[in-house]
Design a protein around this nucleic acid. Structure first.
Lengths: 242, 242
DNA sequence: TCGGCCAAATAAGTATGACTTTTGCGTCAC
DNA sequence: GTGACGCAAAAGTCATACTTATTTGGCCGA
């Protein structure tokens, strides 16, 4: 209801010239087109993109804040090694998901999810408001309703909403901010699913049970059930990330 | 050995004028000095900091990339609500840790840590290289050696190094990038510790056992032992975050 | 021959002013 | 009261000149 934004990874539709430069350089760097150590010169970039140096500098500042590059006087803008990137930046995540090492990224995110979500569910069991419990059961029911007959898109919407509520209801802002990550993982799963394969009924049941556990305040049960869900996601991984 | 950087949260020592503006605006915003909805005008800021608009704009771009503010034409730069901030950005974390809601932030991070570290330890048990196992036991021994006689600083160094190795050895880049967060949590703990209180011997023993579990490839044991460690950290929380 | 020091070249950083574009808001007509 | 119109405000863009830090390399002395 309050979610009018597109279900994508983060902020699409960059505005302004510097945004367009960013949308070009970001994916290129994260895809490895510019290996670590590569130096970019601002004047050269200004020429290449046919914009002023001002615009380039603003884009560079953003790239720098993501730790993708480092700008040093007299030397230029150098691409930093992968290990130093701000891999939690939503845009970096999005870029890597559309790029070459999408499988690798999907694995990382799924593992992260499998660590976080169970704990979040446990916390949700003690922190969730009645309204959040209601939303949880609502979306669980929605999943049940759309789990048969090739309604994968509708199912996905409920699935994402369900997990978003769990993460939000945990009361931990760090967990809540991972909702977009989970969205990306779930979306990626659906996209690579065989188109006519309905969701696993067992997984649907688990979601219903999690909703119930949270509603009744059974933290241990909510956590362990969610661990089963994420374990399932981990199991699917070998199919998705070759 | 390879860590010559100061043990702080992230990149200290911002260089350039825009960096100085950032170091002033960032903490102010994250501390709540500018409530969400507050509008800042670029030329006003340029006057206030006595720099050119160019510099201000670059700082704004970075703030914008952290989702701390949104810049819109004809309206100005508006501070965004807390829920939209990029709370995983190392600088945002650092700013919040030095600001007003440090306790709240410390809680969030500790909870996150308690979710992630056990899983990371489990993975480390199957992924760690012999060299990493060696480092692990080395630092565990270091913790034992410094656990008595008011050597808290030396103990902290080993503690941080130990957990950094665990997170790195997990083989998951997302986990590895949380090492700074764990550093911050551990540092915060030591700082607020009563100065003459030696570390809990039980915790020290747990670290030694984790190192052993990882070395012998016992994933389940490594995970469960680490869960005990983080549970301890959670228990201490009520003292640290009033 | 080696080592350190100084100077020139270079590329990012900063400042400034003029111009463009978007858009909130008030006004005026219907 | 509602809609269209236009003004003005503020960010966005650009070109240019100037500053500063840093690398490189050559020069000079030990």
């Amino acid at each position: 209801m309050e979610n009018g934004a597109p279900a994508d990874t983060g902020d699409n539709g960059e505005k302004g010239l510097h945004g367009r430069v960013l949308e070009s350089l970001g994916p290129a760097i994260t895809a490895g087109d510019y290996p670590p150590g590569t130096v970019l010169r601002t004047d050269e970039l200004a020429q290449r993109f046919d914009v002023s140096r001002t615009v380039i500098r603003e884009a560079i500042r953003v790239l720098e804040s993501m730790q993708l590059v480092a700008s040093r006087r007299r030397v230029g803008v150098t691409v930093r090694p992968t290990e130093e990137w701000n891999v939690y930046d939503p845009r970096v995540i999005g870029w890597r998901l559309t790029g070459r090492d999408r499988p690798r990224q999907l694995r990382s995110l799924t593992v992260l999810r499998s660590a976080v979500e169970p704990v979040a569910a446990g916390l949700a069991a003690t922190h969730a408001t009645p309204a959040q419990c209601a939303q949880l059961t609502e979306h669980a029911m929605g999943m049940v309703a759309t789990s048969r007959g090739q309604q994968l898109d509708a199912y996905l919407v409920h699935d994402m909403a369900f997990h978003r509520v769990v993460l939000t209801a945990s009361g931990n802002e760090m967990f809540a901010r991972l909702a977009d990550v989970v969205d990306a993982v779930l979306t990626g799963r659906t996209q690579h699913h065989v188109m006519f394969t309905d969701p696993d009924p067992a997984a649907v049941t688990l979601h219903v049970q999690v909703a119930e556990a949270v509603r009744t305040g059974d933290a241990a049960r909510a956590e362990s059930l969610t661990r089963e869900i994420t374990a399932g996601a981990m199991a699917e991984l070998d199919v998705l990330a070759p």
